[in-house]
């Protein structure tokens, strides 16, 4: 079985991402801390490490066309974040193949490795460089990113540790959406900021779609999935249970959870 991560190799041009029979398994140590000391102690007692194999994604096949917004729903532990990391090329497929056609920008966990001692401006530059942009490209976008994040006057040059959690999240989101990505991966990233910022974020994402860019969103805010996505998939314990129209998928998911359409499931976190 092949296990590969490829970039735009023999794939129809209209596709941004092609996932073929993807499985991701990894082993986790369920016993002790991962230290040399423990390894030596175990070896001296002739004990073996108890490992558990986690099958995070099982035989998933999916095509994501350019210019589409795909929502991924599912309970905790469904494999949503693992799938996003695999698409981003962060996690290797155990089996199967992922082919990506375009530049990816990610916002997979709030914080994105910001250094709290550095200013927002410095962190924007670092974030951009980490995503593969050149220094000149980032500097030309710094003001745009800063304006989009709507930071109070002067905050862009203050250490990030002085930011409120909302400001922090807004800068992280702003960096991700303003890097002119072909494919934008957002994992629970739409909670940043107030209602006004949320509206601005939605508009920006609609602009990206209009420019034929692709967005994949993982969210527990099911109303967001309904509002923004033009297709959705439901993952459960690593398996894709269904795929199709967002409203239908969200309904199906809610029925499965046996909670019905409660406001708590629909509100944007």
């Amino acid at each position: 079985m092949r296990s590969e991560f490829n970039k735009a190799e023999q794939m129809p041009e209209e596709l941004a991402v092609r996932i073929e029979d993807l499985s991701i398994k990894y082993k986790i140590n369920v016993d002790t801390k991962k230290t040399l000391k423990n390894a030596v102690m175990r070896a001296s007692k002739g004990e073996k490490v108890r490992m558990r194999v986690v099958e995070a994604v099982k035989h998933l096949t999916l095509d994501i066309p350019h210019g589409s917004v795909l929502g991924i729903v599912g309970a905790n532990g469904a494999g949503k974040s693992t799938l996003m990391r695999a698409i981003a090329g962060i996690l290797p497929p155990t089996e199967g193949r992922i082919t990506v056609n375009g530049k990816i920008s990610t916002l997979l966990a709030l914080g994105v490795g910001f250094n709290p001692a550095l200013s927002g401006r410095d962190n924007i530059i670092l974030g951009g460089l980490a995503s593969g942009m050149s220094r000149a490209e980032i500097e030309s976008k710094t003001e745009e990113i800063s304006d989009f994040a709507a930071l109070p006057d002067g905050f862009i040059d203050m250490p990030v540790r002085t930011y409120s959690s909302g400001m922090y999240g807004r800068v992280a989101f702003s960096v991700a959406v303003n890097m002119t990505p072909d494919i934008l991966l957002l994992d629970e990233a739409l909670s940043a900021g107030d209602a006004a910022f949320k509206e601005k974020s939605f508009n920006r994402m609609r602009e990206l779609c209009a420019e034929a860019r692709t967005i994949v969103i993982v969210s527990h805010a099911l109303q967001t999935v309904n509002d923004l996505c033009d297709s959705a998939i439901w993952l459960h314990k690593g398996t894709m249970l269904s795929k199709g129209n967002p409203e239908a998928i969200v309904d199906e998911y809610l029925k499965f959870l046996k909670v019905g359409t409660l406001p708590s499931n629909l509100e944007d976190m």
């Binding site: 981003a88 962060i90 990816i104 997979l108 966990a109 994105v112 490795g113 980490a130």
Partner: peptide
């Protein structure tokens, strides 16, 4: 030490 960066970006 670069955990968050590693979990967010492919480089």
């Amino acid at each position: 030490a670069g955990g968050r960066l590693i979990l967010n970006q492919a480089f």
